[in-house]
Amino acid sequence: MKIRITEYLDIDLAAETWCCHGCGQKFGNARDNYKKGLLIAERPLEEVHQPLVTGEQFSFKPDPDYCRLIELYCPNCGALIDNEYLPPGHPLTHDIELDIDALKRKHGVC
């Protein structure tokens, strides 16, 4: 039984695994951080935020001293599962940590 958790993430309750909603690719233990099962890349900021000014401190592009853009992809279909804007080197966020036992009880999965 799969439960939809976000736009791109399912949990297979019986197998206790995170899955890609689009292609079903398994991302690992549902009790762990799903990001550990994804492919990760840092995107150059100017590829996503077009600078409208050159040679100045501000340009509509984030300042790389403060901010980097991390993208997380499904290793099978290449879907963008999520992204994070973080200061350089800041740990990725374990943003969803579900009580899997409670979720299984809720859905009648033993």
Binding site: G37, I40, E42, Y73, C77, P88, G89
Partner: peptide, 23 residues
Amino acid sequence: RQRRIARGRPYEEFMADWRKLTP
């Protein structure tokens, strides 16, 4: 999408370099 898969790195491999950065 294929280019994403090509440039993406597994979690631990990515984090090994990422952790070295600091503002």
